[in-house]
Design a protein around this nucleic acid. Sequence first.
DNA 1: ATCAATACAGAACGATCGTTCCTTAATATA
DNA 2: TATATTAAGGAACGATCGTTCTGTATTGAT
Lengths: 196, 196
Amino acid sequence: MGRPRKYDPDRALDRAMQLFWARGYHETTLSDLVGSTGVQRYSLYASFGSKDALFHAVLDHYLETVVARLLAGLHRKDAGLGEVRRFLDQVGTMADSGAGAKGCLICNSSVECGDKREVAARVARYQSLLVDGLSVALGNSHRRGELRAGLEPDEGAQFLAGIVVAACVLSRSPTGSDLVGSLLGVALRAVTPVLL
Amino acid sequence: MGRPRKYDPDRALDRAMQLFWARGYHETTLSDLVGSTGVQRYSLYASFGSKDALFHAVLDHYLETVVARLLAGLHRKDAGLGEVRRFLDQVGTMADSGAGAKGCLICNSSVECGDKREVAARVARYQSLLVDGLSVALGNSHRRGELRAGLEPDEGAQFLAGIVVAACVLSRSPTGSDLVGSLLGVALRAVTPVLL
DNA sequence: ATCAATACAGAACGATCGTTCCTTAATATA
DNA sequence: TATATTAAGGAACGATCGTTCTGTATTGAT
């Protein structure tokens, strides 16, 4: 009953995500969101409650779409070093996307407002998704003898998770993105056997 | 001539640095700075010009004090793998400093407002200081045969610079700081010879 | 056709931001 | 001692922030 809404909330959520991703939480204003989504202020509040609540919804949306898609390969039961390599390649490609690289929304938000409980929870979830996926893949690799000698799968997973975070952060700065190639290359070699 | 100022500008700069470091640019207000430095608004403007200008001065101050002290060992002419190890140990200690870990002011600022020219310039300077210092040390190590076979010094320097950035970023989140140990440990092993 | 319910559109709100003005106090110099 | 100069202290400014209110339009149900 009542007048039907003229906009698609999911579409608005996606546009809001792009904005927060590119500009960060503080530099994204309600006016920006209104302009980019085409949804009026009041309607945004009716749908999401507040700027903070919208931001949290955006973080969840990011986890469910961008992160899930990126980690899909790693969470396969039989994932191995091949999936790890493909995953790192994807990260490298994102970092190489030029001057407009936005990095990772979760990593950015962790630095910018990680002291807020609701954000910290999403950051924790992101990190555990990342570490767990890598851990599964490296565990399989370990059993198959594809892993660097002396490297525990969990240790390698924590290491590579850190590498990914670094790649995301570095990709946001013009001078930093030059480092991503070496970072990912050496990291991958560090987990693969010497004779492979 | 004229009334002498009651405060020490350098002391104020240092207090301002602590505040920006802990809270970031956007969440640090002029009122916060007045409260923490004990210097009145007008005097802050007289000394530094604006919030932005103060922030840039703070970044320079950070580079000249915190970063310079941290990199001092690496920039010694005869620096080698020992200095690299000590440097990474210091980074790890900073990351382990508990829940109140602030990470690195430059890395934080790069993520939060790296799109501003004045900030990007400091970020670039930071990254080149880091890479150059590591490059010198790894170059010496290479000549002494202390470096992992097949690893170019410059490539290793870029790799380790990325590791440092990751450690700084991860140290700001409670769940991330758990990863720093593995990150630094595996990274150090990745640049040292297998039989060492 | 009428009514209840919902959304739209935009004005307007209080709070807070960075910044500046104004008065008073304190010093160096003449 | 008188004066010029600079800083302190605090009120006040315009702008912009996130948020809410008001009136109108548009639908489903009775």
